[in-house]
Design a protein around this nucleic acid. Sequence first.
DNA 1: CCGATTTGACCCAT
DNA 2: ATGGGTCAAATCGG
Length: 314
Amino acid sequence: MKNQGSESCYHSKAIEELVRGHESANQLRELFNKSNEGSCGVGGDNSAVTVTFAEDLLGKVLRSFTNTLLLLNEKNIDESEEMSQFQVRDSRSWKPTKSEDSEESCKSTSGIRHRYKRRRTSQTWERDSEAPIEDGHKWRKYGQKQILNAKHPRNYYRCTHKSDQGCLATKQEQKIQDEPPLFKTVYYGIHTCRNLLNPEILLDYDDCASECLISFDNSLPTKQNLPLFSSSSSSIMKECNEEIIQDHHLAHQCQSTASQEDYFLSHEFTFDSSCCRNLTLSSTLESDHSADISEFLCDFAEFDLFEPFEILMS
DNA sequence: CCGATTTGACCCAT
DNA sequence: ATGGGTCAAATCGG
């Protein structure tokens, strides 16, 4: 059982992540709205920059949802033991699970290896997908193991920023089915690293007992006016989780669709270098998919952060 | 050259 | 004793 300050901090961190994701999604919407305004294709030289920017935004959204899911799961488990197996709609959805408990050991035997760290108690997320997941985080593989009665080996990854920032997030990935291909990914722990490409993303999970300092845009919600902060109802958290799971799923679909169709690469965008938020872009090629994709992205970007809360609070 | 991956050994839990 | 998680030296590759 965690104390009130800790719970409040999980709320705060979750909101912080949602707000980031919301802001990034809005930037994506802005980007695609501009692309649909039919401006003439100028400045095609900047298309690579714009593609990078769009991918960066997608990465931010995915990271925000990933972190929020982990945070909310942490909160859910704190609140409710019966929530330990929260199953949702489809095979690509997130499924929080409880990790096996283990202690860090410091056994020192012959002196060859001083400390051998087993995974700490931490929240885990399990997810099945038809392809290895691109979750926006950078991972470094540190092991591979053939598992008993398993056709395919299990791969072990840790956060790239473990060494430089002490981030303890890890994940395991294993192909569990051939046809159709199905991969199982289990995430352990929460990222505490600052992503160097997105320096604003920094979660001080170690400092969860203390007040969280968040700087929001004026246009964005603050924790004072978010119902989530005035309620600890687990139903709200469940609802919130489902909503985020959907959006996380959509973000992945959007990312894979874009890459599969080479949508970004086959269109010319211009990028107003004076300000990332005032993009001027154009599409000079017709594509059967472009309208669908941009509409899809706009729909995705328009998800309402407040909706699940308002419904539940009324 | 340096960061990422591979892979056998080591270590822990059961 | 065994399965599985992690370490770390060797290797790879940009």
